[in-house]
Simulated scan of single mutants.
Amino acid sequence: MKKLIAAVCCGAVAASTRGAGPKPIAIYPGFYTGNTYRHLAVPSRQHYVAGVIDGLLAAGLMAGQSLPSKTDLRLANCLGREPMTDEQVTAIVDQFLTNNPEVWEQSMPFLVLNAMLKACADLGMSK
């Protein structure tokens, strides 16, 4: 009987804490879409974009590739040619989203990559 009471109490505690915190965000295909990103404050957007760029630049290494992909090289060459700040890269991403509202429901990591590749191509750094 004591075990039953303990089990019921544990279950009640677990059930009561489920709704206590903020709503969880699903990870796949990413934490944010263009819509959720657009509602972040500027410093949060800058940190987010910097993290995505870091992740994109390290993705090949994390996947165990010995050589970077063509996309990795294009992005690294573009960012390294004229070093950009997180503020500049965020402005590029924000402008891309402003100009392309039809993509706001897509996953932000892909939108960041597309925004940067487009900006690099526009600057003549696509290779």
Score class of each variant (00 low, 15 high):
Glu105His: 15
Ile25Met: 06
Ser69Cys: 02
Ile53Cys: 02
Pro24Leu: 04
Asn100Cys: 09
Val8Asp: 02
Val13Tyr: 00
Asp54Glu: 04
Leu75Val: 03
Asn100Gly: 02
Ala6Arg: 10
Val103Ala: 11
Ala26His: 10
Ile27Gly: 01
Val103His: 12
Tyr37Ala: 02
Met62Pro: 01
Asn77Ile: 10
Leu117His: 02
Gly60His: 03
Ser126Pro: 00
Val93Lys: 05
Val93Tyr: 02
Leu61His: 14
Asp54Arg: 08
Gln95Ser: 14
Lys118Cys: 12
Tyr32Phe: 13
Ala59Cys: 07
Val42Tyr: 15
Met108Phe: 02
Lys2Gly: 12
Leu4Cys: 07
Ala50Ile: 08
Gln106Lys: 15
Cys10Tyr: 10
His47Ser: 11
Met1Ile: 08
Asn100Trp: 12
Gly30Asn: 03
Pro68Ala: 00
Leu97Lys: 06
Gly30Lys: 06
Gln106Gly: 13
Ala14Asn: 02
Asn99Phe: 13
Thr85His: 06
Thr17Trp: 12
Val89Gly: 00
Asn99Glu: 14
His47Glu: 14
Arg45Lys: 09
Ala26Arg: 11
Ala63Gly: 03
Ala115Leu: 04
Pro68His: 05
Ser16Ala: 14
Ser69Asp: 10
Asp122His: 14
Thr36Glu: 11
Ala6Glu: 07
Ala6Asp: 07
Phe31Leu: 04
Ala59Ser: 03
Ala12Trp: 09
Gly34Phe: 00
Cys120Arg: 01
Val112Tyr: 03
Ile92Ser: 13
Cys120Leu: 01
Asp54Gly: 11
Val52Trp: 06
Val89Lys: 10
Asp122Phe: 08
Ser107Gly: 07
Ile53Gln: 05
Asn100His: 15
Leu123Gly: 12
Trp104Thr: 07
Lys118Met: 08
Ala115Ile: 08
